[in-house]
Write a protein that binds this DNA or RNA. Structure first.
Lengths: 156, 156
DNA sequence: TTTAATTCCTACCTATCCGATGGGAAAAAG
DNA sequence: CTTTTTCCCATCGGATAGGTAGGAATTAAA
């Protein structure tokens, strides 16, 4: 299960993505950087109600994780460092929740040897590696841009 | 990530499965019940070292979950209620770790409405439902019998 | 140059859960 | 009636999740 941290992260990110797309449409500049139109924490909380302080720590994590940039002081806030399509959901989850794999011994980014278990002979390893791959097939393919897409018929 | 409980459960189950298969081969009776040859906790712990008391609670869970049967008293122990192929890994995980879905609002067996979020409009729901399906494609297909299969070249 | 708005940093707090243990009751076999 | 087992209940220490508090540093604007 995703932690609250990751859930809140996705909500906040969806706001940033929507603003990012809107801005590119207005300016008719699909490659413009988002760094000059940051979004403040209080703005994000107003759109998706949650604890301001808690969101603060989450956004800091996303910044350290290389997904967001920030601007301090009045008029400051956070902005996407890359195009939404260039940040897979897997990256967000790894930053906030750690490993995606169901076992440390089949994790690609957080591998840890499992004691009391010969990996070559362990039937579970192979199966959980399958699960990991099934997960990554979705989470590495889907990106932040997919967060902003709503099913047909829904208003923005 | 799987809990220790689930990991230990799989280890214990793998011994039960191996014994089950061996027994069917010996008796040349592929449909024989396993209820007359139970395996005690101490036997399981000897094969896969772990806390006896902890394994006890796990096996009790598996029993309540409908996967194992038990026999009390001298010569007693636990046994598989069904053919290994008839118990998907998903069932084991649900008993010990709860939901497989990454969000309560996309869980099939443990659904909970998510407040502060219109499910029809939430971009995350749809994506996490994809992740859930990818997981289940493996976990509902793979069964206990797959636990006993080792990669070629490995000794038992 | 002051004020207001913001990110940034460190520390803390509380409740829950995970992993594990202990003591014994109940059943079954010999 | 003794031994071996499952079964049940209570507890426990440590870690983690989720959230809070207070203030320093930075920036824009009045």
């Amino acid at each position: 299960m995703l932690s609250k941290k990751a859930q809140y992260a996705f909500r906040a990110l969806s706001t940033l993505v929507r603003r990012d797309l809107a801005r590119r449409n207005e300016q008719n500049a699909p490659d413009a950087s988002a760094s000059d139109t940051p979004t403040s924490i209080s703005d994000m909380v107003q759109i998706h109600p949650m604890s301001t302080k808690f969101l603060e720590t989450i956004l800091l994590d996303l910044k350290r994780g290389g997904i967001l940039g920030s601007k301090k002081g009045k008029g400051g806030g956070y902005y996407l460092l890359k195009h939404p399509e260039d940040t897979p959901l897997a990256q967000v989850i790894r930053i906030l929740d750690g490993p995606i794999a169901p076992l440390p011994c089949v994790s690609l980014h957080f591998y840890e040897r499992c004691h009391d278990c010969n990996e070559a002979m362990c039937g579970l390893n192979r199966l959980m590696a399958e699960v990991r791959d099934a997960n990554l097939a979705v989470l590495e393919q889907r990106t932040l841009s997919d967060l902003a897409v709503h099913p047909e018929g829904a208003a923005a």
